[in-house]
Design a protein around this nucleic acid. Structure first.
Lengths: 327, 327
DNA sequence: GCCTATCGTATGATCGTTCCAATAAAAATT
DNA sequence: AATTTTTATTGGAACGATCATACGATAGGC
């Protein structure tokens, strides 16, 4: 039967014949309460169906047990799924640590900065999780300046790597292992299809390919992210006779795959990046980021290895090695 | 410069030489305050960088301005993106209405029920948004019983359609228009590839095909959701010589497309459902759900057409007509 | 000039919890 | 047995806002 009004800690105290504080102790640190008292109080809690009011508790403790994360507007492309997986994982890991995840949406940087300010000013969250850091990230700078605890999925590109806590995928390691795998299996001429100049993670991934190639040479081309763009770019390349192709994204890999099929080379080994459902459906190999491990890492940055509340951590970074999925 | 401690309403009152209540009025209902006083108070607010504390306000008003929504575990398939898009859209629309969105994760029904109880007991949210309703949904029943305001993305299948507020995609309308389109364009024998018995939305979508077909006949087959499954199912069918194919999901449509290509009929018109990135990448037509409209509808159910707080609404449903994307 | 409305502002209580300091009771030490 | 230490519990204050009500000032009606 639903009660008209929820029982408060005072009701329980009266029912059990103890003080409010004792009830509070039974709930929050049972070990310091004498067993007989504890049982009495627990019975009262059961009887009244008492459950502590989260709002009152938060006001008193000045802790919300909530972290905020931005949900990017749906991009509509093949990629973008990685961030969703990350948010999924973050929510699960956070729940296991007694934290809730609050979403905020923003279409522009200005809007996002405004949201961050609001969340911090109103004391709505204990910490913030940033995603997709860029060179000279203004959000990170703002949060640092205001002293809001945060950690980022993404490196502080270009600045001190210990500017703030962060976890990132080691893109170079991913393309390196992809390239090595193709070198082993297909031949020496392993080409690379990247994004145009200007993307930090793009050049990180390209670096992995270069490092694995060493002295060998093979074409390196670029295209804006997208299936059609990848197809177009590779169409021109194929006559060159390459042995394999490493792509900076699944969208480009899919385009490359379609071009290869059209050119009568369906067996050309191609590796994408992100291991999206589309690549899986087409049987294209891909480098899989591990957003679950990133999420766990982020929480560890914020709360320490064990704790269940946000505490100040010294800034440090963690690189997660991605996994090559061969199809 | 970051202050050591945030200013409170009392600080502002003292600075402006008025009472706390007057400051509160300036913030919440400026119109009832005399202009001269208002300016004075606003100046003080500026000077101190005051921002109302959300926790205190929530405790006092007993309103959290927060709604909860479940984030499903990453399924890994082609589909599943629709729900992500919905959550995106919900977050944006909610922000526009002054609401925050809190996530919860659950792997099982029991776990979800527990989370719902916790959220309600602790008074953490003003309302809950359910997704993926089923026949005799226990979550809906529980929330109704406890008097927690909620609305669902999904119909109350099988029971009274006004059991609770809901918004859903009109799946039958989607497949109906897809089927009609193929009938116009390709011929009379438009087959249907559905899921095995037992899915409510699956049979809803099949109904749309049946209605559009009328007296005409064409094969109807089923497969578990998945690219490989779809490919397998269609491989056996093609000899029958069909003119087109409507599928209950993009995953099946992609499988069907691959089978058609292999069988030398790449031009076979196929329509999927959900308009996922994978379908787009392969140039497969699809029925697009409109999660943005569902999100807006859900909020209207909870808050009325205009309001910015959750109010009791009479239970009613809304069917959103999906859109056929032709490629 | 008096009485009543209206408006703007102030005061104290309250939301439900935890913190803090104090106290009573029990146990350990001398 | 007196004293100190430890343990268990208590009562009041505080977190920071809004609610309900009361009050003074100004304006309006006759």
């Amino acid at each position: 039967m639903a009660e008209r009004k929820a029982a408060t800690i005072g009701d329980v105290a009266r029912e059990a014949g103890v003080s409010r504080q004792t009830v509070s102790n039974v709930v929050n640190s049972p070990s310091i309460v004498k067993e007989s008292t504890r049982l009495k109080v627990q019975a009262a809690i059961e009887a009244l169906g008492y459950s502590p009011n989260a709002l009152a508790r938060r006001l008193r403790t000045q802790r919300t047990s909530t972290i905020a994360v931005k949900l990017d507007p749906y991009s509509g492309g093949v990629s973008g799924v990685v961030l969703d997986r990350f948010v999924h994982a973050l929510t699960e890991s956070a729940a296991a640590r007694g934290l809730r995840v609050l979403l905020y949406a923003a279409r522009t940087l200005e809007e996002e900065l405004r949201h961050l300010d609001e969340l911090a000013d109103a004391g709505e969250v204990d910490a913030i999780v940033l995603t997709g850091t860029s060179r000279g990230d203004r959000r990170a700078a703002r949060l640092l300046e205001r002293g809001v605890p945060f950690a980022a999925f993404g490196r502080p590109w270009g600045t001190d790597t210990a500017a703030h806590p962060w976890v990132d995928i080691d893109g170079a390691a991913g393309t390196r292992s992809a390239t090595r795998h193709l070198l082993d299996r297909a031949g020496d001429r392993i080409a690379f299809l990247g994004w145009p100049e200007g993307s930090e993670s793009g050049s990180d991934r390209e670096r992995g390919w270069r490092e694995a190639m060493g002295e060998r040479t093979a074409p390196r081309l670029t295209a804006e992210d997208g299936v059609a763009e990848g197809q177009e770019a590779v169409k021109a390349l194929l006559p060159n006779g390459i042995d394999g192709l490493v792509c900076v994204s699944d969208a480009l890999a899919i385009g490359a795959h379609l071009a290869a099929v059209q050119a009568g080379r369906p067996e050309l080994p191609i590796v994408g990046f992100d291991n999206t459902a589309a690549a899986e459906a087409l049987g294209i190999s891909s480098v899989e980021q591990l957003p679950e491990r990133v999420a766990a890492g982020i929480l560890e940055m914020l709360m320490g290895p064990e704790g269940n509340k946000v505490v100040a951590q010294e800034p440090k970074g963690l690189l997660v090695e991605p996994r090559l999925i061969i199809r």
